[in-house]
Design a protein around this nucleic acid. Structure first.
Lengths: 328, 328
DNA sequence: TTGAAAGCGCTAACAG
DNA sequence: CTGTTAGCGCTTTCAA
């Protein structure tokens, strides 16, 4: 038989269905003898409880649905690591979907998840409209990673990107750099966010008593050599993690010999290329979101709206060093 | 009411439950008037069918479970693209899991999927034992991507890696290269597979009337300069996609000026770093697997065991060019 | 402790 | 075309 049912197990163990149900859920009030007989029968039959039947009857599914913004972006793999670890600790089953970054597909993905009647949902980097997130939150508890919205029912876990820029500057300054340029490495998308980061950069430089120097993407290479040239670069909007590095190489510079480089964010190629980055730790974002969600589910509380902001981390790799002449 | 049921819709529309059920499933044999009344009521109530109840009653869930070997490896994102596209064309809902590459977690993930009683399952790059795959296949139709096993019930879609090596060599030769070295760029893991690739390389070279030259990973840089030096390199086991490139740079070579480079496989950094690669196209692998699976589900056939081998593709990027002196 | 009975929300014949 | 009648596999009272 392909899928034995509770009843098959009961028959084989010579007990009632209800007893088997109790045993399967680990109820303490079953005699040791019978319990083992049931377990044995279940094992022999290869019995696996049917989640859907259980969910229907119990009113809860034990499922947490997770939307991952875009599988092509490695940051979601890291977020998932955090989510999964937190979920494993609380023995809930995680089911994943993704819309591949396209809002329309993402909406469909979220609705499919909702159709399963999950106990809760985590949306990591959702691109759908805030109203749709809100609507989803009417169906089950929802936690969002990496996006903040005006809502008192959705838990929100976000990284502090401005703080990441600050830390990056601070780290470069601590290494001894005084001329730290800000390079806009990427194409035009995400302008508004980029502007905020630029402001954070300026503020951090000024706080350190240094002169900010922003190089917009369009501008030609600029003076990279000579006495006034920057000894360190903070790259914004480098979506690959290697674009800024390549640009520096192209300008004939050695990294970190001539200039140190820190890229903001968690771009795909950064780790492989050994590029130092400054960004909120994605694993932690995921873990916190899942934690908040499960807390809320366990509490049975309707009201969410918790906001958690995670401080950034500088991941020092091979592109940062003290400025030339400082050492040896 | 948080989750209206079929019955609520029926009440509001003033019809029977069965009629609503028919409408929801798009049956053609419902009067236009009633159909619209039902649809209207459903919309007003925000009704969404409960997948679990539907699955329980219908005996099929409309769910295809997908195991993705490791979210950190971008090839799985590409495989997923193919899977998702094929699934969308046939309107099935795809639910994802992953074991993060660890067999124990992967097994748990597969079992969780199985507990949902999916109509079928795709295992992309599974690390679990063949016997466990076989066992899963007893529960529902299964297709496997990227792993071949002795089984007459599991559909298998694999890429032809030896052919990828052949194509790479052929491409290099077509560009005019005569001294094509094979570089083992990675650490020791995956030796047996690597050996097969090396054999394929030798065979391809000999078929082209050229002398193979393998440089094992341990060997020091070797003669990269001078009259007999290779003008092209085929890199095996480069797990980042940039390791071989970095090694060539380190040896003081310009790419593709001094040497052309093709990396075997779909390593993470290759696209970002502009490295030319030769490998089976992962999207297609995914699409074929999903297609085979859905065909089998539709046919209601138990017997699978189809084997599909996908020919490789050379993705020409910035590291390949004719040998120096050939042009201009 | 154990068993019987009543659904969870939906589909699938089957009669009207 | 439409409504009625059984379940799907499981949990959950409620008695025994």
């Amino acid at each position: 038989m392909s899928h034995p049912t509770l009843e098959d197990v009961a028959a084989r163990a010579g007990v009632s269905r209800a007893l088997v149900s109790l045993v399967m859920r680990g109820s303490p009030k079953v005699g040791k003898e019978r319990r083992e007989a049931v377990l044995k029968a279940a094992r022999e039959l290869g019995y696996r409880p049917n989640v859907m039947a259980r969910g229907l009857a119990a009113g809860r599914t034990g499922i947490v649905g997770v939307l991952l913004g875009d599988l092509h972006e490695p940051v979601y793999a890291a977020i998932h690591d955090g989510l999964a670890a937190a979920a494993a600790r609380r023995s809930v089953r995680v089911l994943l979907t993704t819309g591949g970054g396209r809002p329309a597909r993402e909406r469909a993905a979220v609705e499919q998840l909702l159709d399963l009647r999950p106990d809760g949902m985590v949306l990591a980097g959702p691109r759908i409209a805030a109203a749709e997130i809100e609507r989803a939150a009417a169906g089950c508890p929802v936690a969002v990673v990496g996006r903040s919205l005006r809502s008192d029912r959705v838990d929100q876990v976000t990284g502090d990107d401005a703080a990441a820029v600050e830390r990056a500057v601070a780290r470069l300054v601590a290494l001894g750099h005084r001329r730290v340029a800000c390079l806009d490495a990427g194409p035009g998308s995400g302008r508004p966010a980029r502007d905020a980061l630029e402001r954070a950069y300026r503020a951090a430089m000024e706080a350190a008593g240094l002169a900010p120097a922003v190089r917009p993407p369009g501008e030609p290479a600029g003076p990279w050599h000579g006495p006034g040239a920057p000894t360190a670069v903070l790259a914004l909007g480098d979506s690959t993690g290697t674009a800024a590095l390549a640009a520096l190489y192209r300008a004939g510079l050695s990294v970190p010999g001539d200039v140190s480089l820190i890229v903001h964010g968690d771009p795909p190629g950064a780790a492989a290329a050994g590029v130092t980055t400054a960004a909120p730790p994605p694993r932690e974002l995921g873990g916190l979101a899942m934690g908040a969600l499960l807390d809320r589910i366990d509490a049975g509380t309707t009201a969410g709206g918790r906001r958690i902001t995670v401080p950034p981390v500088v991941t020092e790799r091979a592109t940062t060093a003290p400025p030339r002449g400082t050492r040896g």
